[in-house]
Amino acid sequence: MLIRYNKAINSALKEEMQKDPTVFIAGEDVANAGGSFGITRGLLDEFGPERVIDTPISESAIVGMAVGASSTGLRPVIEIMFMDFIAVCFDPIINQAAKMRYMSGGQMTLPLVIRTQSGAGVNAGPQHSQSLEALLFHIPGIKVVMPSNPYDAKGLLKASIRDNNPVVFIENKALYGMKGEVPEEDYTIPLGEAKIVKEGKDVTIVALGQMVNKAMAAAQTLENNGISPEIIDPRTISPLDTETIKQSVKKTGRLIIVHEAVKIGGVGAEIAAMVQEEVFDYLDAPIQRVAAPFTPVPYSKPLENYYLPNENDIIQAVNKICVGRQFSIAGHS
């Protein structure tokens, strides 16, 4: 069935709640209003106010409540309306949620999902547009998921809800309207498994979240120019499927990492470092990163457009390192 990304999330929540009575939802405006992006629409009617809870505007309290609830055996799926607000709940996430399983020697489970919306492009200004996955990715003890399409969103959310560890589930706002084929029957996608979205032989492009789609758009142009990119969507950045990335780099010898977050200290830096540490001898060109400039997300529409990495940036990065006698641009001898 062809559905939108937001509907895929909605149906994952609905199916997991039907299946497991310990699953409940809490967050700002998730019950009566159906979520600020309409993700939880209809759930209050079906499951009632005890399982679909409107909270006060206190993100720290929402996460704190979820840590407590999940440690007693419930499976909270809470929503932080904008990823930017996650900054106010770092203590419950980083010092509580991420540490409890470790500190209890695994005796305690913490099946808690924090759904949150990231990303620029909707003219929401510096405090409502950030991509902060690198901050969470840095913390051992939490999983970080970044689905790029409706099929993955549904399968990964179901797996996240069933996982016994805290999971931060990042939904890029720009993807909510994206349509995709999603099966009727129940399925999950294991956390920590990358997907090779497109096979290729000349350059590996690892793209995060909505950048997977920009990379796919760039791939069309590149193929026309005689360059064959392999596109990898890690889907989960923590745990990261390093094996798939390394195998691809071994094949292509070139790597480009694309993310919407700022370049400095981003996930791309970690992937680049890992690749050069582990498969240095397979690199045929310097690793490139395509990411946002090191600045807050601008409010101005033209500036925001400039800020966001796009297909052309990816094509430029590819053209910079796909130089050599095997590429048609350089001419065959």
């Binding site: 010898g253 045929d284 060109a285 310097p286 130089v323 050599g324 350089a330 001898s333």
Partner: peptide
């Protein structure tokens, strides 16, 4: 034949 005149795998094969 690579970027900045770097010798790449394809050159060695050639």
């Amino acid at each position: 034949s690579g970027p900045n005149g770097r010798i790449i795998e394809e050159d060695v094969i050639y």
